[in-house]
Design a protein around this nucleic acid. Structure first.
Lengths: 123, 123
DNA sequence: CGGGATCCCTCGAGATACTG
DNA sequence: CAGTATCTCGAGGGATCCCG
């Protein structure tokens, strides 16, 4: 080993694996970013902002984010029901890093797409 | 919309979705970090560094990373074969952001695990 | 309105065996 | 050594219906 001696082969003790298990799924990051843009949103508002997420997956993803303490869920006991979601401080603290990744993606996506096309032709 | 007017509902035009499609899988980020630590590695060296990845998934993941231009693959035409992998400049440029995420994970993993335990009890 | 419960199907990914 | 080829299984995730 040369540098930080991170043990990548220990799934439970590897920070990269932990973070990926949390936000590496299809929707969680997207939900966090939507909530960051709008501050407070109701279930259907998130649903519409993302567009192509199913009700089920939105529900499941929100529940996971809530369980981890990244999102706060506030229920108004009324009929019809009203539920509001917002980021917790912990959730907000993750946003800058996600945005940094997003910016990297924006900058290099063209290059990556060109690389991929060239790679296919090479085969 | 309040802030950057990102259109999250356009899968093809959403940087978050693009980056997740690239690195949101189970192994790609891990491979990038392993390569960053050791500079140049052969196939089986990566295999052993990660430990619990199958040959198949390592092969597939490396091929994708190569296609996107994040990893360079150098074949020595000899028997037995020898293949070396290293990060490209593009691959290297992604590392700091991944490390930032990894650090965030290290800092907050305890809190998240406690949140999750408390959430389960609440149910 | 905000979900929960159920059904169903695709595909990610592991195990194994084989090859230049 | 560095993969490829096949088979297989389980989970991720969509569609639909229902309920307080």
């Amino acid at each position: 080993m040369k540098k930080a001696d991170i043990n990548f082969s220990e799934p439970l003790n590897c920070p990269v694996r932990n973070i990926l298990d949390r936000i590496g799924d299809k929707w969680s990051l997207l939900i966090l970013l939507v909530l960051e843009q709008e501050d407070v949103l109701r279930f259907n508002e998130i649903h519409q902002s993302i567009g192509d997420i199913s009700q089920k997956m939105l529900s499941v993803s929100l529940k996971n984010l809530e369980a981890d303490g990244l999102v706060n869920r506030k229920v108004y006991p009324q009929i019809p029901p009203k539920v509001e979601y917002k980021l917790t401080d912990l959730g907000k603290s993750l946003i800058p890093f996600v945005n940094a990744l997003s910016d990297w993606s924006k900058q290099h996506m063209d290059t990556i797409l060109r690389n991929r096309t060239a790679y296919k032709k090479k085969l």
